[in-house]
Structure formats: structure tokens, C-alpha cells
Amino acid sequence: MKMDSNKIYKSEAATSHLPGMLHEAAKPKMRGENVNVFYGEKQALFDVNLDIGANEVTALIGPSGCGKSTFLRCLNRMNDTIDICRVTGKITLDDDDIYDPKIDVVELRARVGMVFQKPNPFPKSIFENVAYGPRIHGLSRNKTDLEEIVVTSLRRAGLFQEVKDRMHQPGTGLSGGQQQRLCIARAIAVSPEVILMDEPCSALDPIATATVEELIDELRENYTIVIVTHSMQQAARVSQKTAFFHLGNLVEHGDTDEIFQNPREERTKNYITGRIG
């Protein structure tokens, strides 16, 4: 089944190869097809079909309890840690079904990293926080290699200048915004392809938020990013694609400019103008 879909996709890609760049950009990094999620008896998501484009920022917006975080957590199977959660449908990463029993969840999560709503650095030093992922996946050959990964990750997360003199002090001692950037550095350190962000700025002040938003924009170059946010302005600022969820349904998705300026659905329009939510 998996092999088949691969073949089909490849043949399609082969036949319509002419537009080249244009088509490459349109090739989705991740794709959800008819995704349904149940918490026990309660259904949280209904037949969601959503493509996540490579090297883009996709924002998931919608009122609380609409299922956007649930969908996000399906993308790296973090829902597996919840006993009563059940997922049906198909989610692919580069055309591989991530809910295939043969898929190694641990490897999947190394490819699809995640940053949480509340900064959650481990009670270890800044260095050890970032080195954690590379260590468990054996990504470095020696100590200098590991140090380089840590420094590069911190630099990419825009934190290196601030912490370079206190790499061995506890990560929990940083400010909220710095902690969140540390968590981003930690996620980057395992070289993921996709980074999921669950309201990464909701616990931060406006200045720290601006820093993190800038960072997200820079990260787009190398990573595919999916961000859940409650802030319409944030979605408009950082994302290229936006998906609006309501009551477990994906109501509308498309280019961010399109959604915010010219929404097709009445519900989307009501939400972004603040009438529901």
C-alpha cells in the first residue's frame, strides 16, 4: 500500500516535471488525509485533509478546543502518550505513512521536532539541554563534534550570544523567552525536517515574542514549520499558509494573505474579525 502510493506519486512527479521549481515548491512535506481523532468516546477531529508545504510556515488558528493542537500533536504522534487517544486516517511525511506499524516513532520524532506552549527546559545545564537529542541519537562522533552541534543550534536559535559565557549553568535559570529559544535550539540540534510549535509565544512577553517570531521566519529557510497560535497578528506576521479550525473541522486553508484579506467562509471571516472564538 505504502509502496504503491509512492510509485503513483513518483510517476505523477515524473510526468509533470516540466514546471520544475514551481512544482517542487508545491510538493507537500506532510499531508493529512481524512484524519479523525477520538479521545475515548469523544471525537476531536473530523476528516481533516491538510497539506503542509516544505520550507513554509503553516499557521493553525481557531478558537480554544477546536482541535488545532490535537492535529499538531498527530503530526509527530505525541498523542501516543495519551492512553485514550485514537487516530484514524492517514498522515504522511515525505509519502511515508507515519501511523504505519512499521514506522519507528522514535525516529519519526527525531525528524519532526516539537516546541511546546510553556518552555520546558530540562533541569540540566544549557549545554546539556541542547546536547540531549544529539547524545541519544548518536549524532556526533566526538566531543568537539557535539560542541559544534550545540553551538550551531544555539546560534540558529539566536541564543548563543546571550548564553555563551554560561553554557554550564542550569537552563531553568534563563528568562522565559530565552528558555523558549533554548527549547527551539534543543529541537534544532537533532536536525529535524519539520518543527511543530504549539503556541510557542503564549507564555512570553511582547519583546520575547518578537524575537521568537523573527527566529521562526529565519528557520523557514531550512525547516518546515507548523505553528499553532491564538494570535491572529502572529499568524499573519509569520506564516505563509494558514488553516482555520472550528469545532474539530478544518474550515478553510490557503495562503495566509488570502485567508486574512479575503476569506471564503463566513466562519473564518467571523473568527478573524473577532466575532467568534
Binding site: 520524532r109 511546546f116 540531549y132 541519544i136
Partner: peptide
């Protein structure tokens, strides 16, 4: 120990 610690570790691909 907060669940967020565990989530953070799982999200990095730890067993």
C-alpha cells in the same frame, strides 16, 4: 515531575 519534561524528551525522539 511535570509531564512537560517527559513530553520535551519524547518530542526529541527519546524512548
Amino acid at each position: 515531575v511535570p509531564q512537560s519534561m517527559r513530553d520535551g524528551s519524547y518530542a526529541l525522539g527519546a524512548t
